[in-house]
Design a protein around this nucleic acid. Structure first.
Lengths: 154, 154
DNA sequence: ATACTATTGTTGTAAATGCAACATATTTTT
DNA sequence: AAAAATATGTTGCATTTACAACAATAGTAT
C-alpha cells in the first residue's frame, strides 16, 4: 500500500512536532492579543510551581523540560515581576532555592487561565470532547514512556 | 471535581508540548548515536522535498513551519552535501528556486528511514498500533484546524 | 506611464536556547 | 582525614531562531 510508506511525514513524530509547533505559535499570538505580560514558558513555570509549591529549581527544570540555566533565567523574570519567590532552604541536607508562588502570582495565573480558556476551547471544539480526553490520555502514556527512554541531563 | 482543575498542566496543549519536546530530544540523541550526518530539520526538509519534488522554497517553509530565512539556511546545508538541488524556474510568472532531491539525497533519506525505524517502533511499542494510528489521525485533524486559525507570515 | 503593492529569496541582528565550565557545599571513597 | 564524586545554581559562549529590512521582479492602480 502506497499510503503507508516509510516517511517522516507519515509518522506520529511528524504530527506531534507540527501540531505542537502550530500550538506554540497560536499561543504566542493569543498572549500578544490578550496583552498577557509573561511568556509562555514563564506561564508554564508559574503553573507548575503553583501545583508543586516548595519545589526546587532543578526539579522544576525537569518538569518544564528546560536546562537549569534557562530555568534560572525564567525564574529571574518571574521574581522581578513579584510572581514567585525564591527561598534558600535545604533538601536532603543540600542548599536549594525553594520556589513559591506569591499572591500576585496566583492572581496572575488565574487571570491568564480564565482569559485563554474560551480561546483554547474554541481550538478543540471541532473535536469531540471525549476524543480530546482520549488523545490527552494516550499522549500522557506516551510521554511517560518517553521519559523512561530519554536520558535527560538536567 | 478537583482532578479537572483549570490548569495548563492539565491541558492537551501541555501534553502536546511536553511529548513533542521529549520526542525531539530523543531523536537528537538517536541521530547522534546512529551517526546521522544531517540535522532533524534537514531530515524533515529532505523528506518533504522527496514527496513534493519541484516545490519552491516558500512553500517548503510553510510545510516544515519555519520562516523563509531559516528554510534557506537549511537548504544551503543540504545543497552543500549534494542532497538537494536548487533550480531557478518560474511559478505564476515569478522567479522561484525549485527544489529537487538528488540520487544521493534519496539514498541518504532511505538510509535514515531504515536506520531509525526500529528505534521509533520501539518507542511506540507499548501503545497498541491502532491507538497510534488513531492518535495520529486525530492530531492530523487537529493540526489542519490549527492551520486555519493560526496566521502564518511565511 | 508612473507609482504602489505583492511575491520570492537573502542578509543582518537581537533574542532564545543548549551546553560546558564554574562556585559552593555535601556525600562517598580511599 | 584527604580526595574524589555528586548536587545545585549561576555565568559565559556558541549555536539557533525569529523578525525585520532589503534586492529583484511582477502585477495592479491611479
Amino acid at each position: 500500500m502506497k499510503c503507508k510508506e516509510l516517511h517522516y511525514t507519515n509518522s506520529i513524530h511528524y504530527e506531534l512536532e507540527q501540531t505542537a509547533k502550530l500550538m506554540r505559535i497560536l499561543t504566542a499570538q493569543l498572549f500578544e492579543k490578550l496583552e498577557i505580560r509573561i511568556s509562555q514558558d514563564e506561564y508554564a513555570a508559574l503553573d507548575t510551581i503553583s501545583i508543586n509549591p516548595g519545589i526546587c529549581q532543578r526539579d522544576l527544570a525537569k518538569l518544564i523540560i528546560k536546562d537549569r540555566a534557562n530555568t534560572g533565567r525564567i525564574l529571574n523574570c518571574l521574581e522581578e515581576k513579584n510572581l514567585v519567590t525564591r527561598v534558600i532552604d535545604t533538601k536532603d541536607n543540600r542548599l536549594v532555592k525553594k520556589l513559591e508562588i506569591t499572591p500576585d502570582g496566583i492572581k496572575e495565573l488565574n487571570s491568564i487561565n480564565i482569559k485563554i480558556k474560551s480561546y483554547m476551547d474554541n481550538v478543540t471544539k471541532k473535536i469531540a470532547p471525549e476524543e480530546v480526553d482520549r488523545v490527552q490520555e494516550i499522549l500522557r502514556g506516551f510521554r511517560l514512556d518517553l521519559e523512561k527512554v530519554v536520558e535527560m541531563n538536567i
